[in-house]
Design a protein around this nucleic acid. Structure first.
Lengths: 217, 217
DNA sequence: CATAATTGTATCATAAATGTTTCAAAAATA
DNA sequence: TATTTTTGAAACATTTATGATACAATTATG
């Protein structure tokens, strides 16, 4: 389980981040100021820190200095307008940054990229004759590349990362679309049908009546 | 991973350097005076040292003397006005120098040049019939030189160094332009179209719908 | 200072992705 | 088995992204 610490004083943003990341299988804790952040880092292991620059008590820059000794990757959160702070953050050793307001999908991609860089985990997911390269975003079936759209790709990724688990339509929708599921649409179904067709996954992607879908090997 | 030590007492400059270099894939540490620099060199391997002449405690000239035994290339940082120190530095064994205030792009080019000289790594990147000489900045296609503008050249370099990775527009922009990407412009797209046209890279530079572009062989 | 080269914006056309609707097929329920 | 509900499949409409071109603005160069 990958643990992420979110150091951010605005609860709205903090919660948004937490929800988005936990949906993708990360465990998140939140600290609301720099001091609290420092405390938490001391008492528990984290694999990644998301750090807002403008914090009460200890600010982001000071905290980064403090974190340095722990060898934990850091992604800075900063306002789009506040260029100088962002620059400063990177200087001090943040591994990446993301600007507010941010695109959740991109944030997730960056979190993964930073974690990959640190852990040297593979960027390639394999299921039978199916291969997903999360660096190049190229998907191959029996070695042959198959063009997937963004939604298709993200649904596939969700499935592969949640093998043998029946996923509710709601989960799928909220994970991929990053917005609340209002029910009664067939959008998810349609995309899954297209996925099945393109990758010949009739047997792997099973529909779970009244619930959603399940991916198996 | 190439490690660079920045020995510089002004945090602003130090940070600027670190940011610019880390964006281009170098890992940087900072020392804030000569003594600290000497310590760090003793305890860790560095591939290159950026060294300010005017330092507290031990000054740059003394430190250079000390470094000599380690066989690490050095680039001197010096004020524009202070020509004599520059000369002195070179005499003492600096491999290059850069004057404050400096142009980031030029600095990066010099860092690469010095590292190449030291490691005797090739200055020529080759992808199929495409050749990029990073010394002369001459790009040839099937042996024939092709004129590229600065932006085109840097985008191409970024692509060649990140083969088979889907790059977000934002990443491309911030790497090449060294400033934050505000979104919703077509600038990157346009330059990529020009690159494709000039070098006939329709197949190599693929657009990744809703994401950005990807360079493949 | 004038000219040329580069870079960036605006526009339109095209292509691709997405989502809704419809109807047929399948599954559950009684 | 009949009925209801859900899913599959196809066609269509809508939205969005990219390619291409022309032109404006900026920056370099002599």
């Amino acid at each position: 389980m990958t643990h992420i610490l979110i150091v951010e004083d605005e609860a709205t943003i903090s919660n948004l981040l937490k929800m988005a990341l936990e949906k993708h299988g990360y465990k998140c804790d939140c600290a609301f100021d720099g001091e609290m952040g420092a405390d938490m880092i001391e008492n528990k292991h984290y694999d990644l820190i998301l750090l807002d620059v403008m914090l009460p008590k200890i600010n982001g820059f000071e905290l980064i200095e403090y974190i340095k000794g722990f060898d934990i990757p850091v992604i800075f959160i900063t306002a789009k307008t506040d260029i100088t702070s962002r620059v400063k953050g990177l200087n001090l050793g943040a591994d990446d940054y993301i600007t507010k307001p941010f695109d959740i999908t991109e944030l997730q991609a960056r979190v993964e990229a930073v974690l990959r860089r640190y852990n040297k985990t593979s960027a390639v997911l394999t299921v039978n004759d199916l291969e997903i390269n999360t660096n190049s975003r190229i998907v191959t079936k029996n070695g042959k590349p198959v063009e997937l759209t963004l939604k298709e790709y993200e649904i596939l990724l969700l499935f592969v990362r949640n093998k043998n688990i029946a996923l509710y339509r709601e989960m799928i929708y909220e994970n991929v679309w990053n917005e609340p599921y209002m029910g009664d649409t067939r959008t998810v179904d349609l995309h899954i049908q297209r996925l099945r067709k393109k990758l010949d996954l009739k047997d792997n992607i099973q529909s779970v009546y009244k619930v959603g879908y399940r991916f198996t090997e």
